[in-house]
Design a protein around this nucleic acid. Sequence first.
DNA 1: TTTATATTTATACAGATGTATAACAACATG
DNA 2: CATGTTGTTATACATCTGTATAAATATAAA
Lengths: 215, 215
Amino acid sequence: MDSPRRSFTRESAEHRREALIRATLTLIGRKGVQAATVRGIADEAGVTLGLIRHYFDGKDELIYAAYQAHMSQLTDATMEGPRRAGEPAAHQLARIVRASLTPPVSSPQAVGLWAGFLNMVQRDPRMAEVHSRTYYDFRDRLQALIAPALEEAGETPTPERLRALAIACNAVIDGLWLEGGALPDAFDPGELVNIGLTSVGAILGLTLNDPGEEA
Amino acid sequence: MDSPRRSFTRESAEHRREALIRATLTLIGRKGVQAATVRGIADEAGVTLGLIRHYFDGKDELIYAAYQAHMSQLTDATMEGPRRAGEPAAHQLARIVRASLTPPVSSPQAVGLWAGFLNMVQRDPRMAEVHSRTYYDFRDRLQALIAPALEEAGETPTPERLRALAIACNAVIDGLWLEGGALPDAFDPGELVNIGLTSVGAILGLTLNDPGEEA
DNA sequence: TTTATATTTATACAGATGTATAACAACATG
DNA sequence: CATGTTGTTATACATCTGTATAAATATAAA
């Protein structure tokens, strides 16, 4: 009555690594950091736990890779699409605000996941490095859009002011992203996008128009 | 050569519960959720692990109590001091912004701790309840200050607009709190407070003055 | 078709984890 | 000073966790 060895098919290293990372993100996002055990992850990925050590140096490496994957996924989804030639910077800014505050970027899974990783930042310098790199990256991209948007309105801010504006806009967007993601039922559809556009506009002294569903 | 049973002193239930909660917060904040084991917590609190079950129904209950304690601690520290008679609402608002964006409210421990708990929100409804209650509580307090602050400036916003303003101000404060706490070296001293006051002011259409160190 | 390779599974293992229970001793009460 | 209560420690236990290693088999190559 001994169960036969389960059948399997060989997959490319990249495919397997992706599957393991995705499984890790799913578990941390849905059930919390504690649920992301090697057995749980392997199960979710449809493989056995030995494969984790085969493709990663250990569980910590997998977690690290998953953090990086999640954050670049978030950034990519937020900065969706290439910069359109001749498009006003203010319009691009509005697109970013909208993308940041709607699913899948702003969702319970994305926020829960991000929170779990953030909790690991203090004890692991490599995780901290991902955090700070992600933060600066997003803020710099924001700043690179704020400058031309102000220029379009006839204003040329000092570097100090530009920095402060980028920090402030980043903060509102982050705050709204967080709250909308963690409490999705607390806001009407589109409410956060409107508030985001209005707030960023108020901070910058501009008027931002909603880019619409698919701008 | 058998070590003698360690000596101890009896303490009040409240004292012990507090010590266990504090130890839990210290561990989750410094070393992450994974470090908050019953043995680690008992060690940090200077007792043996049996006491946890004696004072709480289980580890989950302790975590739950610790979450509540941390959040009310944060709220209390932010809303420091009683409302001063005759003080302008705008001034109180500025005090809240300052308190939110300086230690101990905004610190790596406080943010890391909060993130760890937030990650637990999805799988545990009771944790989710603490999260949403805390969010609404803070936002309502903010709103209760924004209304008179606008009145002082001669504006009477509609309920919808008031709600939107509270959500927006809450978001900037949260975002700045988060970023300052998680990346304390990324900002000059006082920089975030200035940005916070300016941003909240811009959103509300008011001018907020820095209340100073001890306002 | 045979053989070699390494992907994948299966198992073992030491240590950690949460919980349950028994033993002890600090302190209050008489 | 004697005694009972219960706060506290100590230990046991089943389960889970990450890692290491051996065995098997899918697939490519010859």
